[in-house]
Amino acid sequence: MIADRPNGRPLKDSDFELVTRDIRAPEAGEVVLRTHWLGFDPAQKGWMENVGGYVAATNIGDVMPGSGIGSVIASEHPKFAVGDIVSGRFGWQEFPTAAGDELERISDPEMATARLGVLGTTGMTAYFGLLRVGKPQAGDTVVVSGAAGATGSVVGQIAKIAGCRVVGIAGGAEKCR
């Protein structure tokens, strides 16, 4: 659970609290999952600080939000059977009970963890942000202000593929290397 807000400072272990609760049985339209992998994105710190305004505000005591990959261990949703591998935003929980309509079945379990990286939020943000919003044309110069970060590094690669000149900005010589 979220135990403190890391506003203006690095994360500390005490920003989180490990809580044990009973697994909630699924109601109609829900499934119970066993989490196998969690996504850890830089944006999650901002979510804890309630900055950005593009995700729901968090409260002290909330489950830490985030993406995950898990297997269905109980289902009351017609789309999912026990054993299905799914992805979704079910937070940092070992056995979440989640709305089935908010999950996506993974057809190739060998590629499951890619959905937590370049084929997940990071890659989708880079792809749609650059190509649908930025709409670069071959020959344009694209400046990436967070070029050493997860999303920024993907933006730079997509811009290069699109035939653009890329200028990356990063926080120091080591990151620029």
Rank of each mutant, 00 (worst) to 15 (best):
P10I: 03
I60K: 00
P10Y: 06
I158P: 01
G156E: 14
T151G: 01
T113W: 00
M48C: 03
S75Y: 14
S75G: 05
G39S: 15
G163I: 15
P136F: 11
G53F: 03
I69T: 05
K45V: 09
E174H: 14
H77Y: 11
K160S: 05
S87G: 13
V155N: 06
H77P: 02
P78F: 06
V167W: 05
L18C: 06
C164T: 15
D4G: 14
A159Q: 11
G168M: 10
L11Y: 10
A112T: 02
V154M: 05
V144H: 06
R132G: 02
K79A: 15
G168Q: 08
T151Q: 07
G39W: 11
D84E: 15
V142Y: 04
V31N: 05
K45F: 03
G139L: 07
G39P: 13
P10R: 05
L119Q: 13
D4V: 12
P96D: 14
V32C: 00
T141Y: 05
Q93A: 01
A150V: 06
L116F: 06
T97I: 03
L33K: 09
G139Q: 12
R24I: 14
R9Y: 10
G83R: 09
D41C: 01
Q93D: 03
P78R: 14
A138K: 14
D22A: 07
G66K: 07
P26E: 13
I161K: 14
I60M: 00
E174F: 13
G156A: 10
F128M: 13
I106R: 12
S67F: 15
G66I: 03
D15H: 12
G146H: 11
R21N: 07
S75C: 03
I69P: 00
K79L: 12
T20P: 02
